[in-house]
Design a protein around this nucleic acid. Structure first.
Length: 243
DNA sequence: TCATTAACTGAGG
DNA sequence: CCTCAGTTAATGA
């Protein structure tokens, strides 16, 4: 796979929240990245492990999650191409959650060593990753509100809209539809409900004419109903270039 | 394997 | 009494 294809989504995404200079793009383009293929539901890094590299999602979907003693898994965030979900492992050496593929995925690994050197060489790149991490924590706050307070159909709609707005940044929204290649089991884990209940909730939003959902793709039928249901305010994504 | 649905149950308002 | 959601089980794609 050509080097620019590996990094394209990352650079595209960083441009949205940061004004990124050409030298910085060159720095990122010069980062050595080793690419590997993963099947779905494969752990990339596990809770308790020490990582020596960070993972850039080149293609496919991943999730960060924690599993409790009973075996139930809570998905904490969905991660899409162009994202580096375990950037914090650069500074927090022991993982406090799992990073797992949700679909077959192409992942690029960047050594902590090289990332640390880049941070020291280019303060602007460091600031960019710093901002990225703050947005990440803003998304966690929203996720807590979603799972803790919204009714299940709103939870589903909110996760869908957030996903759409993030996919839009990397040019992966096609008109009124976008990818969401998760099983209903995985959707349930993201929403804090069982797969059977996830199925009931999906059935309900379908019957209400809000969205269609099949073969891993969401098609919006009624944008207004969709937004009202989701109670979505995208400010927390901080998608306007600053500095 | 995944999606779908029914039937039953209980919590909580 | 109603809504939400978990469990179990059957069935279909």
């Amino acid at each position: 796979m050509p080097s620019d294809t590996i990094r394209a989504a990352l650079i595209q995404r960083l441009r949205v929240s940061s004004a990124i200079a050409d030298e910085d793009v060159k720095e990122i383009e010069a980062l050595p990245i080793s690419v590997r293929q993963y099947p779905s539901e494969r752990a990339v890094v596990r809770d308790g492990e020490r990582a020596s590299e960070c993972c850039l999602i080149v293609d496919g979907f991943c999730a960060r999650s924690k599993t409790i003693a009973s075996g139930r898994r809570q998905i904490l965030s969905l991660q899409i191409p162009g994202e580096i979900p375990d950037l914090m492992s650069l500074f927090l050496h022991v993982m406090d959650h799992d990073l797992t593929t949700l679909t077959p995925a192409t992942l690029g690994f960047i050594s902590h060593d090289n990332l640390r050197k880049l941070h020291r060489r280019s303060p602007r790149v460091a600031e960019m990753f710093w901002r990225d991490t703050l947005i990440d924590s803003a998304m966690f706050r929203e996720w807590i509100v979603n799972v803790g307070q919204r009714p299940a159909p709103a939870r589903l709609a909110h996760v869908m809209i957030e996903l759409r707005e993030r996919l839009r940044l990397i040019g992966r929204v096609d008109g009124d539809s976008f990818e969401m290649p998760l099983t209903q089991e995985q959707i349930g884990e993201a929403l804090g409900i069982t797969a059977v209940h996830a199925n009931r909730v999906i059935k309900q939003v379908r019957q209400e004419g809000v969205v269609e959902f099949s073969r891993g793709r969401v098609t919006v039928l009624d944008e207004q109903k969709f937004q009202e249901l989701a109670d979505f305010d995208g400010r927390y994504l901080h998608q306007s270039p600053t500095l």
